[in-house]
Amino acid sequence: MCLSIPSKVVSIDSENEMCTVDTMGVKREASLSMMKEGEVKIGDFVLIHIGFVMNTIDPKEAELSLETYKEILDFFDEEELKNTIKNGDECVNKTI
């Protein structure tokens, strides 16, 4: 009950303060009563909680997080590569 689900807004019915969202292929209706007028636009990512849009998701912030993860992964990949080379250097079966 308590999870909030990222979804994408596909249409808006401003008269009834409702919108249709896509949650990974599943379409559903959500209320916009908790959002200010005009705050949510078609194509926006939003968080859905028990049938309500509770906020928009900032794509720039999401991108920043993902970039951080990529940097961390690159760092470990490089370390791993270094370790592999180091292990290779110490390998007793080394022929060259």
Partner: peptide, 11 residues
Amino acid sequence: MSIKLSNLYDD
């Protein structure tokens, strides 16, 4: 990069 809905889940 522009974010897709799947990024918000999978990544």
